[in-house]
Write a protein that binds this DNA or RNA. Structure first.
Lengths: 176, 176
DNA sequence: TTCGCTCTAGACCGATCGGTCTAGGACCCC
DNA sequence: GGGGTCCTAGACCGATCGGTCTAGAGCGAA
């Protein structure tokens, strides 16, 4: 719901109705709306963490394919939710002009993802999949940024082609 | 203000105070809040249109450099506003899950920008700056998407390096 | 002078907002 | 049985929300 309506567009009342929970319970579990949203982000990141572990930690693919696989799995999860894109991108855009708490948290999340991808890209570099001169940390951050842009476009169009086009372009260019 | 606070985070009262306008005037000029925001988008697009004309229409640079110049000028305008990123990206992320009016309008705006950039990339292709096999329409859409992602990251960090890194990567890859 | 149009002005409205607070149920331990 | 903890429950609160509405000022044309 937070992804669909955004932070300000989603009222507490609607959350309660969707969860069939009374207000007392909400404020027992969360300090306030901000805390709720931050916890939703944490939960989202737990899922991302699990996805990173599953995709990057496996050994049945070479490193570069493992990095790509993570994004392909992410694309599938978007599809299951109607191509509403990425929660981090959504909240990041909505809230970073007005809230440093969210801005820094979301920057931290994206940096974490880039760091994990970067480690795999470094493996790919050592394995000769990427040019030896590649700065894999920079490349990973660039990939995450471009992915967020493609996710926005996927969201606007309600379909996934921008994601696939971006991945194709990116991985072809990175290996050149 | 719409860029800083987002649509729902910005109340009419704050707009009125900033503009030193009374409510009667606001509702005289705009049907409702949605109309106001759509008009802000139109105004933003008028500025983008002017920037596209100025950057793409000039003849003192080759086509590819003209395309890049548009994004560099855009980056400068972001800088003047404190690196809050792109209004279209911001509103697109905030509103497209809940409002088809905004989703379609913003998709239209981004497509228009891509179309204009695509025409210049087509010139670049004819001039031999891009491989003959390049699908310039696809490439332009990809550039706009990646730009939006880099703009989000610039916004989160409050600085422009993601924009420059993305442009460098993109233009190097596109010409390869 | 009168009329019509454009625009400003702000009081007012009902609804919704996020959050506070009191009450009570369930469970466990002494 | 009593006390403590955890949690549910929802009435209540003041503030803000987007929008409506009435009044009036200014201007130009007839």
């Amino acid at each position: 719901m937070l992804l669909e309506h955004g932070y300000h567009g989603l009222g507490i009342q609607a959350v309660l109705e969707a969860a069939r929970a009374p207000k007392g319970s909400f404020y027992h579990h969360f300090v306030d709306k901000e805390d709720f949203a931050l916890q939703v982000i944490d939960q989202y990141m737990a899922a991302v963490h699990a996805g990173l572990d599953a995709c990057l930690g496996s050994t049945d693919r070479p490193p570069l394919a493992r990095a790509r696989f993570f994004f392909e799995m992410t694309q599938e999860s978007y599809g299951r939710e109607g191509y509403l894109g990425c929660l981090l991108g959504g909240l990041g855009q909505e809230l970073s002009g007005a809230s440093d708490v969210f801005r820094l948290r979301i920057e931290q999340c994206l940096s974490y993802i880039a760091e994990r991808i970067g480690a795999t890209l470094e493996e790919a570099r050592h394995a000769g999949e990427l040019p030896a001169s590649t700065d894999t940390a920079h490349l990973a951050n660039l990939l995450v940024d471009c992915w967020e842009g493609a996710a926005l476009r996927s969201r606007l169009r309600g379909e996934p082609s921008s994601l696939t086009v971006m991945l194709d372009f990116f991985f072809r260019a990175a290996t050149a």
